[in-house]
Design a protein around this nucleic acid. Sequence first.
DNA 1: CGAGCAATTGATATAAATCAAGTTCGGTGG
DNA 2: CCACCGAACTTGATTTATATCAATTGCTCG
Lengths: 240, 240
Amino acid sequence: MMTHAINAIQFKHGVCLQCASRDSLLCAGLGDELLPHLCSRSVQKHLKKGETLFYEGDAANSVFNIKEGVMRIVRLGEDGRRQVLAFLGHGDYLGHTNKTNFTYSAEALTDVELCQFQRSSIESLSQKIPEFDKQFYKLTACLIDDMTDLLFMIGRKNALERVASFLMGMSDKLKKNGSNRCDELWLPMSRIDIADYLGLTLETVSRSISRLKKDGLINVTHAHYITINDHEALGALSRG
Amino acid sequence: MMTHAINAIQFKHGVCLQCASRDSLLCAGLGDELLPHLCSRSVQKHLKKGETLFYEGDAANSVFNIKEGVMRIVRLGEDGRRQVLAFLGHGDYLGHTNKTNFTYSAEALTDVELCQFQRSSIESLSQKIPEFDKQFYKLTACLIDDMTDLLFMIGRKNALERVASFLMGMSDKLKKNGSNRCDELWLPMSRIDIADYLGLTLETVSRSISRLKKDGLINVTHAHYITINDHEALGALSRG
DNA sequence: CGAGCAATTGATATAAATCAAGTTCGGTGG
DNA sequence: CCACCGAACTTGATTTATATCAATTGCTCG
C-alpha cells in the first residue's frame, strides 16, 4: 500500500516535470524539488471539444490551470442574454472567485488539458510552499489586467476597433506563448462567440471582419483562419 | 534610536488595532498578535478630495487598501476616451497588476484614508504571515467578481438597466458595509463619471435617472442624493 | 449676487441591432 | 465520390437605441 502511494506521487511528479506548461502556471515559481508538493494536490483533467467543465451555479470548490486547448467562459442572463467573459488557454488560471457558486460556465472549444486544485488548498498553499506566492500574485494579476482591457474595449470602442482589438489580442497571446508566427491566427470560436465577447451581434462582427479584409489589414483564408497583413495598422486601429 | 524604532512600530500597531477596516482588508485574517507583522509593512496615506493617488503610466510598485472614502479608477484612451473601471471604497483592494506600470489612474472623489504596501512585500507576505493567504485570495477574488458583473452589464444591458444596476450596486455596497439605510444613496461622483463607468454618455445617464424617477422607482432629492423607492422592482430591472 | 460648471431636457444624426435573404462550409448517406 | 442537408457565415434593407448637438435650468462657490 505504502509503495503504491509513493509511486502515485512520483508518477504525478513526473507528469508535472515534463508538463508543457511547467513555466507558466502555478508551478512556475517552484523548483523541481518543491514540485511534488503542488503536484500531489492537483488532479489532471481532460475535456473533449464541446464538453463543459462546470456550469453557472455549480459549487465553486475548485480552481483550474489550463495547460492546453481553448476554453470559453460564459455568463448567461435570465432572459438568455450571453456575455463571453474570456477565452482562456495555455497558461491561464480559471475559477478564482469569492462566491460559493460560479457565476459563469466554462466550456471547451477544443480538446483541453488542465490541472484541478481544491480551492481550499490554494487558499492556504503558501503555508506549505512559500515560493508559491509570487506566481499566484502574477496569475491573478494577469486575469485582472485582461479584464481591465476588456472593460475599456467594450465600454468605449466602436465595432471595428473591438474586432481589431480582439484579433490583436489573439496575436499577442501567440507571441506571449513564444510563437514566431503570431500573425497567423486560428480562431476556434464561432462568430457568435466573438460577438458575445465583444458586446456586439454576429452580423456586426462579420461586417467588421469583411471591412478589415477589404481595407487590406487582414486576410481571411477561412472563417476560422485569419492572417494579419498590417500588424502596425491593425494595432493602431485597435487603440482607437 | 532603538527605542524610537520600537515605539514607531507599536504606534502603528495601535493604529491598526483601532482601524475601522480591521475586519475587511488584508489584515482581517490576522489575529491581534500577528497584526504588527503586517502593520510594520504598511504606510498610512491620506488624500484630499480631488487628489490623485497615482497616474496611468506610473510605476506599479505599491498596492493599497482603502479604509475610508471613495476613489475613482480611470483608464484613458489615446484620444481622450475615458472608462471608469471602478468606484472603490471601504474594504477594497487597489493596484493589483502584473504590469510594471499602472494602466489606470486612481483619484479621490472624497477625502480618502488608505494603507499602502510595497508590491514586493505583498508578493511574498505569506512566507512571513501564513494566515495572510486566505484574505488575499478573498480580496483579489472580490475584485474579479465585480469586474465580471461589470463586463456583463456593459456588454449586454441597455442604458436603463445599466443605471438600475449601478444604483443597486451602490445599495449593495452599503448593505455589505452594514448600513441599515441601504436605499438612501449618496453618489459622490458626477454624471460624467457614472456615464464613463457604464459605457454611456452623461445625457443618457441623466435621461435614465429621470425615467426611473418618473416611473416611481427612485426619488432624486438632489443630483447626488437618490433614494430607492422600490428596491424589488429596481433589482428586477437591473437583472434585465 | 452673479459667474461658471453640472445637470436636465429637447431635436437630430448615426452606429449598430434587427430582420431577411443568400452563400459557403462541413458532414452524412446514397 | 458526389449530392444533399443544416449550420455557420456573409451581405443587404430597415429600424432603433443611444450619441451628438443645442438650449435651458439649477447649483456651488467665490
